[in-house]
């Protein structure tokens, strides 16, 4: 997912961050401008578009019936998939999902799953046989850095916007009825990604910053301010002290981002 950034520019970005500043004028702990729109795609059960600066992610949800997993016979199923659509970046190519899109999908999935955001117990139709399956499809439309936070936010916004079909069971068959009810949700997890450059931590790295950070840490925070998922990425490291500092920043930022979501 790399984009060319000249050495001069890299040095400039690095030196600015060292001085507590950023190329686009943000502070180290500031997000870019965030816009969340819900209900973009009428055909989808739920949808949302998030603009994080110039990064643009569209998430659509679909609901179908399917079989539960054998170890959770009374619970609905959640599945997250991510597409790095070729029109989003010169660095994206058509083809089966690569490790970047799989990792992105799994980070978004973990944030939702571990915070128990979807009340999966309410998605059971017939224990062990039939449940609702919620498909969350992340569609990256423009890549300008920090796809993780934009995708996670868009996914939760889309889930909050998702309508479940009304149904009744006749002779073991599920028959859909008119009307919808909202998807039962219990939490609004927020994922905050921090980049590490030397001994500095920056929130919401954009595309060019992503090229020079040593490593990133994505932290999902639930409504109670507890940590529900973490993923380190990149080929650098964090000191134990930086990890604690990062969780602190993530908890503060999560409160700010959650305000963008209509409950």
């Amino acid at each position: 997912m790399s984009t060319l950034v000249t050495r001069v520019r890299q040095r400039q970005i690095g030196q600015l961050i060292d001085a507590g500043k950023r190329l686009d004028g943000r502070g180290l702990g500031d997000y870019r401008e965030i816009k969340v729109e819900q209900g973009i795609i009428e055909r989808a059960e739920g949808s949302a578009r998030v603009l994080l600066g110039k990064t643009e992610v569209l998430v659509g949800t679909k609901i179908e019936t399917g079989e539960p997993f054998p170890d959770t016979p009374n619970e609905g199923v959640q599945t997250v998939n991510a597409e790095l659509v070729p029109l989003a970046s010169a660095a994206f190519e058509p083809g089966p999902p690569d490790e970047n899109s799989i990792e992105l999908a799994r980070i978004v999935d973990r944030g939702i799953r571990e915070s128990k955001a979807i009340d999966t117990a309410k998605l059971c139709i017939e224990a062990g046989k039939k449940v609702f399956v919620v498909f969350v499809d992340v569609y990256v439309l423009n890549h300008d850095g920090n796809l993780i936070d934009a995708s996670a936010l868009a996914a939760v916004a889309a889930l909050l916007n998702t309508k479940m079909p009304n149904y009744e069971i006749k002779d073991g068959e599920v028959i859909l009825k008119a009307g919808y009810t909202p998807l039962p949700m219990k939490s609004r997890p927020i994922t905050v990604t921090l980049g590490k450059i030397g001994d500095k931590l920056i929130v919401d790295p954009w595309l060019e910053e992503e090229q020079i950070i040593d490593a990133r840490l994505s932290i999902a925070i639930n409504d109670d301010g507890n940590i529900c998922a973490i993923q380190k990425g990149g080929s650098g490291y964090f000191t134990p002290k930086q990890i604690v500092e990062a969780t602190k920043i993530a908890r503060e930022k999560a409160v700010e981002l959650r305000k963008k979501l209509e409950w």
């Binding site: 973990r110 799953r113 571990e114 915070s115 840490l217 639930n222 301010g225 507890n226 940590i227 529900c228 998922a229 973490i230 993923q231 380190k232 650098g236 490291y237 964090f238 000191t239 134990p240 990890i243 604690v244 969780t247 602190k248 908890r251």
Partner: peptide, 23 residues
Amino acid sequence: LNAVTLLQMDGILTPDEFESAVN
């Protein structure tokens, strides 16, 4: 080098619990 090169988490932990788990 006192450096953490992989860190993941799933489940729910308070910040204090998380810190003691890492340690």
